[in-house]
Amino acid sequence: MKMLTFKKSRPAVLLTIALVAMVAIVGCGGEKAAEKGGEKPAAGTAASGTVKVAGSTSVQPLAEELADAFMDNNPDVTVTVQGGGSSAGVESANTGTAQIGTSSRELKEEEKGYGLTETVVAKDGIAVVVNTANQVSELTMDQVKKIFTGEIKDWSKVGGSKGPITVVVREEGSGTRGAFEEIVLDKDGKLVASAIVQNSTGAVKTAVTKDSNAIGFISLGSVDNTVKAVKVDGVEPSEATVLDGSYKISRPFLFLTKGKINAATKAFIDFVLSEEGQKIVSEQFIKIK
């Protein structure tokens, strides 16, 4: 085996020191932040304190951008945004470990009993997408339903060229899938069992890009020229059509709070719903009004 006997060695010691130093930096990072918070004078706003936002990883990047903009105006408030999943967000709000829980799906029956206040802060349109080589660019809601339940198996049945349809869906529980099922399928309708299951927008998109026979559904904000979003019942999915309600398939991004909330939390939610906040929302998702 390897032999490693020799005496003290400088590089090794140096490496160890470097390591310890790195750890020290981490430790000091916390102190510096604390100092920063203490030194800065309030810039004429009332709220102060810490707001912890936890939950959906889909909402997280948006919530962080909103938090950054909010903190520019309110230096006495610290907003931290943690991502762990929608359900964890609901739980965090319910148990009070976070002031705001975020969710990118509607609350489930059992969660509705928690007595949480739901605030819709943004909407995410869900586009039905096909490969760019596909001739089909319009489907009726009924065709979409039949394709995803496995009743229609071939593109030739809906006006395309012959080829078995590859159905790509999101994982069970996901907000995108939940909204899609609720709006597109009947109560007892089930997504076809042989569908490819992916757990992210990007993975669904890759599947559709690579396979000329594929169909999937993804967040509207992620649609670009690598895939083709089909019109459903003649309506093109877009910010405008989701906003006016003519395009039906969308999911809400929720901020969840419980009971009476503190001033900082209220100030943050107010900011998110304000014109300035909604402008940030509309860069990636769809504003609420």
Binding site: V26, G27, G29, G30, K32, A33, A34, T57, S58, Q60, P61, E64, D68, T80, V81, Q82, G83, G84, N199, S200, T201, G202, A203, V204, K205, T206, I218, S222, D224
Partner: peptide
């Protein structure tokens, strides 16, 4: 915790490069 921000302390959420690679390629996907 997956945060894109610079962490201020060990109690802040963060993301590593591997996580970032996964989240950007798959959650965003443009």
């Amino acid at each position: 915790g997956g945060s894109l921000r610079m962490p201020d302390s060990i109690f802040d959420p963060a993301r590593t490069m591997s996580m970032h690679l996964y989240l950007v390629a798959l959650e965003v996907g443009t």
